[in-house]
């Protein structure tokens, strides 16, 4: 009788310990991630935005990038450029290009230079090159053989030249009705 109670207490205690331990470890991992990868990028982006807003580079960007990002052909052009097989692996690393251009476009949207419904196709226009820098590593993580890597790299790059601009068009069609009442 007594041992039954003790046993159940041990089981409950152990279970609670596991759950709390898991949660605590998860918290530690997420704080680690944020400090290592998120906050440094925030610092960099903050500097870029501060520079744009304070110096008025924003108006220069507004005259060059905004018209490009406020029309379907302009966005498709961005998608095509990002998907060029020679450019895409160079533009890819750390998604820095996508993040910086996205931030610039965000500033311009906020200033009213780009209509807000163009935000949706813009996500795809700035990001045709997603993962193109990482194909050999990504395939190696998937335990691909050397021959698969040799074929996989051009396969993904060629595919991207088609699907990059296509994604922009799909997103453009999907943006109908988005923020329709706002202006």
């Amino acid at each position: 009788m007594m041992s039954g109670v003790t046993n159940s207490l041990v089981v409950v205690g152990r279970g609670a310990g596991t759950v709390v331990g898991t949660l605590y470890q998860s918290g530690r991992d997420s704080v680690d991630q944020v400090i290592r990868n998120v906050i440094p990028f925030m610092a960099f982006i903050s500097f870029v935005i501060g520079l744009i807003l304070y110096t008025g580079i924003g108006t220069v960007i507004a005259k060059t990038v905004s018209p490009l990002a406020s029309s379907l052909p302009g966005l498709v052009l961005m998608g095509i450029l990002g998907g060029i097989p020679f450019l895409s692996p160079v533009l890819g690393p750390g998604a820095v290009m996508a993040q910086v251009i996205g931030t610039l476009l965000g500033v311009e949207i906020g200033l009213g230079h780009i209509p807000p419904q163009f935000a949706l196709p813009a996500f795809f226009a700035i990001n045709s090159q997603v993962g193109c820098d990482f194909i050999p590593v990504g395939l190696a993580l998937g335990e691909a053989e050397q021959e698969t890597v040799e074929i996989g790299v051009p396969a993904v790059l060629f595919s991207r030249q088609i699907t990059g601009p296509l994604a922009v068009v799909i997103a453009y069609l999907a943006s109908f009705g988005l923020y329709a009442g706002s202006h």
């Binding site: 993040q99 996205g102 965000g106 500033v107 807000p116 996500f123 990001n127 988005l178």
Partner: peptide
């Protein structure tokens, strides 16, 4: 999280305009 600004960069503009973010996030 390390590449959050692909989303957050453009989303910041939408917030600035006072528009709904979830609508854009879902789409």
């Amino acid at each position: 999280p390390g590449e959050i600004f692909v989303w957050a960069g453009i989303a910041a503009g939408i917030t600035k305009l006072g528009l709904s973010l979830p609508e854009l996030a879902v789409r």
